[in-house]
Structure formats: structure tokens, C-alpha cells
Design a protein around this nucleic acid. Structure first.
Lengths: 136, 136
DNA sequence: CTTGACCCTATAGTTGCTACAGGGTGCATA
DNA sequence: TATGCACCCTGTAGCAACTATAGGGTCAAG
């Protein structure tokens, strides 16, 4: 059961270039090669790449994925580290949601304030432009 | 009233490197220089950079900021284009919020499922790892 | 006349890919 | 056997939007 890079990509929903990129940054091992210098993947690489994909789909950045991978190899270890990593990531996601929600609020207020007309009267532009401050 | 790049940065809350970057990509004009080849800014650049900052703070990407800037110069134009631009951006922000909210849901379910123990029993790792599929 | 804060240019690094350019391989088909 | 096509290879550059570094120059104060 040897997979080409394209087959591995199809099996995991990953682009070929991305797989080679993961290899380059050491997230995937250098696989054995065929006579024609094609990468030949097996079950373990398929598993590893699936793991990576799932973690990425959950939004974990690559360095955290790397950490998760190495933690997952250490079966006897306390999983508190894994838990902490996931919690950190969740916190980060929540922070982004908070920021974006505030942004949405501001943006929709801005848009609502625009009642048409020319750019000269536009509330959006007016909000962005600096107040023409009086000077002596 | 001539400002150095550092003063302009302080006045607008922008790092010096960022100002130079904006100049390089044509978002800010090449300012006049002093005898010692220092950039010398005036009121118009201060206004323009403030505009850029506010738009960036509202999350507009640089190409949209560029568009907003050029629209704002065209005072007689219908502001519908500005409005559409802002609405597009709002839609984008809402899409991100939706995505992140789904992610938060998945992540917190994952974290809740982890009841401690070793990595071997860890539900987080288990979720990420591929199901050991039976083969004939 | 030296110290220190500031300025200059040019270039490389960040994250996570994606997209070439310019070639080689492998299989089917005429 | 030749040819076409899909796929593979390496290496490098590009994307957003900065940030940081190296290696220098300028200017005001003491």
C-alpha cells in the first residue's frame, strides 16, 4: 500500500504543495522514494497528515500542531499539557470573537449612519477623516 | 509645522517602520526631505495617515483603505461606492465571527470531553488521531 | 568631541500556504 | 516507437501587513 503524494493529498484533502511544505518544515517525515524519485507514503504518514489536518481545521497554529503531535507520541504522559494547549487555543479564539464582535458593532453603526448623497456628506468618510482641528 | 517620521508616528499611533512601509507601497506620498535627508511631514500627511489608521482599526484591508482614500478625494461622487465597500467588509467580518463561533463550539466540546489521565486515554488526542480503520 | 536619540536604506523574517518555472516519470495509445 | 498527457520533482517567489535587523548617517546637548 504505497501512496503517491497526489493520492495522499486526495485521501486527506490536502494540496500536494501543502504536503511538500509540511515536509520542508519538518511536520511530516521525509518519505522513502520510488525508482523515479517519487515520494511513497504508507499508513503512518496518512495517519500523521490526517491528524495535522484535523488540528488545523480546529484552528491550531502549526507550532501547536507540532506540539500536539509530539505529545500524542508520548502515550504515558499526563494529558494535562494537551488540555492546556487546547484551552490556550480556545482562549485565543474567544479573544478574536470578542474583537470581531466589537468591530461588527462599530461597522454597522457606521453603515447605518450613511444616508446616501455625495462623498462630501458621507458619514463613513467623515468618520475616517480627521476632524479639521482649529489652530491658532 | 514640520514633523519627523517619529513625531508623525507618535501623533497617529503608528510605528516608524509602518509609515515607511506605507510610503513604499504608495499609500503615503513621498514627503519632502530636510537637508539631512530626513522626511518632513505636514498637516496633509498627518490627516492621510490618521485616515489610514482609523480604517485599519476598523479592519479594512489595505487595498480597501486605498480605495477609500481615493474615494474620499472625489467629493462630488455618489457615496454608494463607499457604502458598498463598508458593507462588503462588514459581511466579511460577520463571516469570520460565524466561523470562529463554530470553532469555539467544537473546541469547548473537545476540552470538556477530556477528563484527565494519560495521553493514551486523552479524548483530545483521540479526536485528532485517525480512527484505526480495520483492513482485510 | 563624544554620547545618545533619532533618522536613513536595504533586506530578511513572520504565518501558512500557493503558484510558478523548468524540468523528469509513467502509462496509454496510435 | 513515438507522442501525449497526467502526474511528479526541485527551487524560488509571491500573498497580507507588517516587524526586525544590519550597517550606517544626523543632530542637539554637554
Amino acid at each position: 500500500m504505497a501512496l503517491t503524494i497526489g493520492e495522499l493529498g486526495k485521501a486527506t484533502g490536502t494540496k500536494v504543495e501543502t504536503i511538500r511544505y509540511y515536509e520542508r518544515i519538518g511536520l511530516l517525515p521525509n518519505p522513502p522514494r520510488t525508482g523515479g524519485n517519487y515520494r511513497a507514503y504508507g499508513e503512518p504518514e496518512l495517519g500523521r497528515l490526517s491528524f495535522i489536518r484535523r488540528a488545523r481545521d480546529l484552528g491550531f497554529p502549526l507550532d501547536q500542531v507540532r506540539a500536539l503531535l509530539s505529545l500524542s507520541d508520548d502515550r504515558g504522559r499526563d494529558c494535562a499539557t494537551v488540555d492546556a494547549l487546547a484551552r490556550d487555543h480556545l482562549t485565543e479564539v474567544e479573544r478574536k470573537i470578542t474583537d470581531l464582535t466589537a468591530l461588527r458593532q462599530e461597522l454597522s453603526a457606521l453603515i447605518t449612519s450613511c444616508k446616501g448623497g455625495t462623498v462630501a456628506d458621507c458619514r463613513i468618510i467623515e468618520t475616517l477623516a480627521p476632524a479639521p482641528h482649529p489652530h491658532g
